[in-house]
């Protein structure tokens, strides 16, 4: 009987023990789960795996991208540099005065590009980019304005060229005058660039965008080549420059001298071009400046 009781006791204690062990195992599992949400431990694991460093790198990358995005966004609100602003203004002048200048017409190939190119190269103007536009109007006669692609835009009136019955070389010599006027900085001096300089390559806010400097520059070009023109000093300097450049090429110099004579005679009789000496003073003076001094014996 006692032995049976002992056996029961042993069995129950065994059951209790096994229960206790089972309870201990459940706790361990819970602890394991707790470990998973134990961030301190997780941090250690992550740092051991190098994931923490990777996360830092990623954060740095994101910051860099954000910074670059900001720079890109800011760069959208930039005015172009002065050279581009000048060129855009010049094309704006041509576009806004398209109907007055009447440059959109079917023109034959006058061959002035090759003649003028050869002339420039002969005179030592290398790697210069030139755009020529022939227009069918007498309201403007000639012009030289800055282009946006590091070039110069030269304009020449077809009716004016026809009135003088100009050949390719004579047209090229008139274009050369304008090219030099541009090259010597006379055009820039006559156009007030202050406003364009102020905004060039600067940043603007959407609300404070200024188009007026571009419009003013384009209008200044219109006024310069249709009304204001150049002064005697500038014209004298230009004529002397032409003289120096063409002197070694006697034949071309002679063509130029003869051309000025014809030009002088034409503007004195043709009312259509009576404003010419006001803009380019004056062929008569140019002839005097070019003529050899008379010596009294």
């Amino acid at each position: 009987m006692i032995s049976l009781l002992n056996l029961k006791l042993a069995l129950s204690s065994l059951l209790f023990l096994s229960f206790t062990v089972g309870a201990q195992e459940v706790k361990t599992q819970a602890e394991k789960e707790l470990e998973l949400v134990n961030f301190q431990k997780l941090k250690t694991v992550l740092s051991q795996d190098g994931l923490s460093e990777a996360a830092k790198n990623k954060k740095r990358q994101v910051e860099l991208i954000k910074e670059e995005k900001k720079i890109i966004e800011q760069s959208k609100y930039l005015y172009p540099p002065l050279e581009v602003l000048r060129g855009i203004s010049s094309e704006y002048f041509l576009v806004k005065n398209a109907q007055v200048l009447n440059w959109d017409f079917d023109k034959p190939d006058y061959g002035i590009d090759s003649t003028f190119k050869n002339l420039l190269e002969k005179l030592g103007f290398i790697q210069r980019r030139v755009k020529i536009i022939v227009f069918n109007s007498s309201q403007f006669i000639r012009f030289a304005v800055p282009g946006k692609d590091n070039d110069v835009i030269l304009g020449l009136s077809l009716p004016f060229s026809k009135s003088l019955d100009l050949n390719k070389m004579e047209m090229s010599l008139l274009l050369l005058e304008d090219f030099l006027r541009y090259d010597m900085g006379q055009v820039f001096k006559q156009l007030n660039e202050e406003e364009l300089r102020k905004i060039a390559s600067t940043q603007f806010e959407e609300k404070n965008f200024q188009l007026q400097p571009v419009l003013n520059y384009a209008d200044a070009e219109r006024v310069l080549f249709s009304e204001k023109g150049f002064n005697f000093q500038q014209q004298f300097e230009l004529t002397k420059k032409m003289d120096i450049l063409l002197k070694p090429h006697a034949e071309i110099w002679n063509v130029y001298f003869q051309l000025l004579g014809r030009l002088d005679r034409m503007i004195k009789v043709n009312n259509l071009y009576k404003s010419y000496p006001k803009i380019y003073p004056s062929p008569e003076m140019q002839i005097k400046w070019l003529s050899p001094e008379e010596r009294v014996l």
């Binding site: 576009v95 590009d113 420039l120 290398i126 980019r129 755009k131």
Partner: peptide
């Protein structure tokens, strides 16, 4: 007009002869 302007230009670049 801006579209038409581009084709109206006679363009060249000078080179050493």
């Amino acid at each position: 007009y801006w579209g038409r302007l581009n084709d109206q230009f006679i363009e060249f670049e000078t080179r050493a002869q």
